[in-house]
Nucleic acid binder design. Structure first.
Lengths: 68, 68
DNA sequence: TTGTGACTACGAGTCCGTC
DNA sequence: GGACGGACTCGTAGTCACA
């Protein structure tokens, strides 16, 4: 149910850290608000695929890689 | 921008047909409204990841496979 | 540097139809 | 069977102040 959110949360947090970004620096880079990234990394939001796509582009991965 | 919608649209339509479902039968099976499936297959909507997850489960594929 | 509650505007998601 | 429209509810997008 919400486990898709948790998978997204873990993948974003992991890949962001691997790339050496803080949440704030990454948020700027992705063109998304800082607190929104925070919410996503906690699984507190149910974002749309367009938001996932923007995050994926900022992380240079395929959008599907964030959900699996 | 909307190409993520088009990728989802094509993948859902293709996999649904391969499974031999009509839009309506598939919508019932996935627990989503029939008009919403129609909209998604036309790239007219920007669904949330929870909807993508429900569609993926109904198609027995990974959610990521619908976005790539 | 990140978490969290609260807020408004707008779009996700549902349901009624018709073609 | 599927595209498309109108109308509706409620949740998401996006932001802020503060912890």
């Amino acid at each position: 149910m919400t486990d898709i959110r948790q998978r997204l949360a873990r993948n974003v947090a992991r890949l962001r850290k691997e790339a050496g970004w803080s949440q704030e620096a990454f948020a700027d880079h992705a063109g998304i608000h800082r607190t929104y990234i925070s919410d996503i990394e906690r699984g507190a939001r149910n974002p749309t695929i367009e938001v996932v796509d923007r995050i994926a582009k900022a992380l240079r991965v395929k959008p599907g890689a964030l959900l699996d």
